[in-house]
């Protein structure tokens, strides 16, 4: 396949992540509601919410600067690009060769940076509180993610996601304790970063312990739609990242035919559904933590990342 083929796969990938991300959020909500024996919202409700928000008038606070208006688009752009870099149904994406796991981490970090700035921009006390908490969590979550990236890079010999996925498929992997630790650490980071239950409750507004919602409290209309869509994209991104690294089966290899890509898409949808069910199960079985317990929870992820790197040195440094 030439450049056109690669480009079309990359564009399909970008559209797939954009279109599937509200569906994943809706699916998690439905499963959670069913587990609580409620009927829950329809599966397509997140799409309707987004369309409704996009049509509404955007009201901006009096003291807001240009940053407040620009931030939703910047956050969305950074998250979308990061999501486009993770192989979902096919490896060897066109963009994936120019950027690796560290770039994805950095893009997510800049999205967080703008969100925290926007939270502080209007000057309400809730926004500042949310930003300060987000930064407190980020100081542990980001190093943890970087350590996990280092572990994967040391094991697979590359930070390139396509190469990592290829390595995980090969018999070279063997049985490694470091990989298990990296998986648990990555799941903890993903839960914290997506404001899921033990850390933050995605279903409530106006609660004293909220983090993510506190920062975006002042947004409305299309700005809020952008923010919502980017947080849905972020959830999809983390799920795809975990699926791509730890369950890479079904990914279409480079230069594969059309049928392989179809298999890849089917496998990807299956993985998303499994992840959604697991996430909903996890969220209904644990209680939310106190905010000041969260650093301990994230500290475990950081510890696992560091320990995984160290253990990797002992196994192959001999």
């Amino acid at each position: 396949m030439g450049l056109i083929g690669d480009l079309s796969i990359q564009i399909t990938q970008m559209l797939v992540v954009l279109l599937l991300s509200p569906l994943l959020t809706g699916f998690v909500r439905v499963v959670k509601a069913r587990l609580l024996r409620r009927r829950g919202p329809p599966l397509l409700q997140p799409y309707r919410d987004l369309i409704k928000l996009a049509r509404k008038e955007a009201i901006v606070a009096d003291g807001a600067s240009w940053l407040f208006r620009a931030a939703p688009y910047l956050i969305f752009a950074a998250t979308w690009v990061a999501a486009a870099l993770v192989p979902t149904f096919a490896t060897g994406l066109l963009f994936s060769w120019s950027a690796d796991l560290i770039v994805i981490t950095a893009l997510l970090g800049s999205a967080r940076f703008f969100l925290a700035l926007a939270g502080m921009d209007v000057g309400t006390s809730f926004g500042g509180l949310g930003s300060s908490r987000e930064m407190m969590f980020a100081t542990l979550a980001e190093p943890a993610l970087i350590m996990i990236v280092f572990t994967l890079a040391l094991i697979a010999g590359s930070t390139q996601l396509s190469t990592v996925a290829g390595f995980m498929l090969s018999p070279e992997v063997g049985l490694r304790v470091s990989l298990g630790m990296a998986l648990i650490g990555l799941v903890i980071v993903a839960i914290a970063e997506n404001a899921r239950i033990p850390v933050d409750n995605p279903a409530t507004h106006l609660e004293l312990t909220m983090v993510h919602e506190a920062m975006v409290l002042e947004y409305s209309g299309r700005h809020l739609a952008m923010i919502e869509l980017s947080s849905q994209l972020k959830l999809l991104l983390y799920v795809s990242l975990i699926a791509c690294v730890f369950v890479p089966w079904g990914l279409a290899p480079v230069d594969a035919g059309f049928s392989a890509h179809l298999v890849g898409v089917a496998a990807y949808v299956g993985k998303l559904a499994a992840a959604g069910i697991l996430l909903a199960l996890f969220e209904t079985t644990v209680a939310k933590m106190r905010v000041f317990r969260v650093p301990d929870f994230l500290g475990v992820a950081l510890m696992l990342g560091l320990l995984a790197t160290l253990l990797r040195f002992v196994s192959r440094g001999l």
Binding site: G174, L175, R176, V177, S178, L307, L311, V314, S315
Partner: peptide, 17 residues
């Protein structure tokens, strides 16, 4: 062989964990 080394490494690493 590699498998038995890997298992030993897995269990001993688990002990540290």
């Amino acid at each position: 062989d590699r498998l038995s080394f890997d298992i030993a490494h897995l269990v001993a690493g688990g002990l540290v964990l």
